[in-house]
Amino acid sequence: MAKKILYIDDDYALFRLAQKSLGRLGYETEHAQDAVQGLERLAQGEFHAIVLDHYLQGSTGLDFMRRLDEQGVVLPVVYVTGSSEATIAVDALKAGAADYVIKTVGDDFWPLLGNALQQALENAELRAAREEAEQEIRLGKERAEILLAEVNHRVANSLALVAALIRLQVSASESDEVRHALSETQARISAIAGMHRSLYTSDDVREVEMSRYLSTLISELAETMAKDRRKSNIRSHFESVIFPSDRAVSTGMIVTELLTNAIKYAYPEEEDGEIRVELTRLNDSEALLVVEDDGRGIEMSQPAQGTGLGSRIVASMARAVGGGIRYVPRERGTRAEVSLTIP
């Protein structure tokens, strides 16, 4: 099918020459003598490109291009002017022309016009193909994100069911040691489930807003631990930090283990006390996680209480997400600091 060209020029004789010349190149050319007629022709039929003369009746080609922009008409324009002034060509290109050709009395004008028109059409086709490909990529990304959100939803629900089953097992067990071990397992599973829940409720399924995630995690953990032990006074403060999902779940596991230990061991049964959890952004590439209490403290030279699995989990994950964990000496209580690298 021949490409349709709208030739806008107040010189009809020149249009007839253009029609013959461009016709030999396979183009179908129609004429408009001024801007008003040009807009009418564009509204009536489908064109692939415009050849636009600078000097029109009562206006210029630059005025016409501004009208095209106002009406949202996107077509490649080859700008034609009889002036040798470079500023007109520059203004035309700034206004959105694909190319320009200087009108001459010699025979070289028509081959130059044909070449400029061909290149303008080819570039327009390439842009259209690129935009279509980008649109397909965007749609594919959106579909993938929807599917990933659904996967995270299902995983979170499945893990929540597993945690509920463990909770039932905790209530049915007569052994304190078994109950404590199962409660810790339930807390770890809940930390992972919470991360997946944050992902499917987030606008970006690849990232987790840590303030919301950790707030929910601590609330659920405190509720779980209260069923097995006494209620703890937990105070938290989180600055806005966004982590990829893998780094988020590692951070959640660290908080789970440190907070569980503080709830279990920081204060004697008859003593109540505060546990503080903070996440502070130090700069664009580093954040600091702190879990501290004012309890009995820990002696690093003494063996870990319980199985020691929690301590190994914390040490391993702290190395994976940043600079490891360190315990800051205090007169009373325990302060654990974990340096987190922000990707």
Rank of each mutant, 00 (worst) to 15 (best):
T185E: 11
I146R: 15
L148Y: 09
A181I: 11
H153N: 11
I192G: 04
L165A: 14
E174A: 11
L147G: 03
L165E: 15
I189C: 02
I166W: 02
V155P: 04
S183V: 07
G194T: 05
S171L: 10
D176V: 08
L199G: 01
T201D: 05
R154D: 14
E145Y: 03
S190V: 15
A163M: 02
S183W: 07
E132K: 13
A191H: 03
T185Q: 09
V155G: 11
L159N: 00
I166E: 04
S198F: 01
V162Q: 13
V178E: 11
I146S: 12
N157S: 15
I146F: 12
V178I: 08
V178L: 09
A191Y: 02
A128E: 07
L199W: 02
L199Q: 00
L182R: 00
E142K: 15
E177F: 09
R188V: 11
E132T: 08
I166D: 01
N152V: 04
A129F: 06
L168T: 09
A156L: 00
A187Q: 05
M195K: 05
I192F: 12
L161C: 13
A191G: 01
A156V: 00
Q169F: 06
E142H: 03
T201A: 06
A181G: 07
E142T: 12
S198P: 04
R127H: 05
V178P: 03
E174G: 05
